[in-house]
Design a protein around this nucleic acid. Structure first.
Lengths: 137, 137
DNA sequence: AGCGCGCTTGACGTTAAGGTAAGCATAACG
DNA sequence: CGTTATGCTTACCTTAACGTCAAGCGCGCT
């Protein structure tokens, strides 16, 4: 437990490399809801887990609204059963979407690699030329 | 060659499920440059290849500006050598970024799967209950 | 000649995701 | 105990990536 249980907004910003504005913005959009000590925010372990998922989702190109919905997949704490089943279904969909994205990413990586290898010889000779006649800068 | 060599803007839109506005916008941002027949646009095989890459990049969460730079990795047709070397370097970076993203995506998929499996039993019993007492709708 | 359709440019509107600035409260520190 | 840092809210500003709307051109048909 090197990490404290609650963190101030500043500590969060330093830990996750975001601005206070961003955290408040996410709160306004109901992606986070830190405890209030008087008027100040205190972020718990749960908020940190959620923020991590949020930032990851963003890197994958999801919108905050998309992310907001997926967050409930991780820490739902009850809710009625039909609601739970819908959440479950949504999770399946998300998973499928992510696996599709993974497949597409693999393809893209393969293509780029092929492109790189195809032009590798030309690059090599360029580097050699540069090494022999280094009068450019 | 079931595909014609040049396509009108409408044909492109139908083929890629985008609006004319989007194609013109990408052109303004120098991601595409179709031939002009008089004032009209004609999109070639090359434009189609680029558009495919653009839309893919978007799904991965890249900005159009990011994508614009990466596009040159695929169909550079010359350029001076220092420029070429820089492009090469950029390609390496992109590749690394994509591989990092794939690693993160794998992790995310694994986590979501774990979450799903953990709550699978509860869901199963819910489904069973719903099957036995189907008086909700 | 007139009509309509597809395309063009140009200008302005919109949404998401924050940035920035003003004004006030409170907490920590020398 | 005054100053300095941290935090809060409210309000307006910005950028990317288009959407929407108006007005006009060219061309194929009748």
């Amino acid at each position: 437990m090197t990490e404290p249980d609650q963190m101030t907004i500043r500590e969060m910003c330093d830990a996750f490399d975001v601005t206070p504005r961003t955290l408040r913005f996410y709160e306004a959009k109901e992606l986070l809801n830190p405890i209030r000590l008087g008027t100040r925010r205190l972020y718990t372990r749960r908020d940190r887990a959620r923020l991590k998922l949020i930032l990851r989702g963003k890197r994958f190109g999801f919108s905050l609204e998309d992310i907001r919905q997926t967050l409930d997949l991780y820490d739902r704490e009850g809710g009625n059963s039909t609601q739970l089943l819908r959440t479950w279904q949504l999770a399946q969909d998300r998973l499928a979407a992510m696996e599709a994205q993974r497949a597409e990413l693999d393809e893209a990586i393969a293509e780029l690699k092929a492109e790189l290898e195809a032009s590798a010889p030309a690059i090599e000779s360029l580097k050699k030329a540069a090494a022999e006649a280094p009068e450019d800068h």
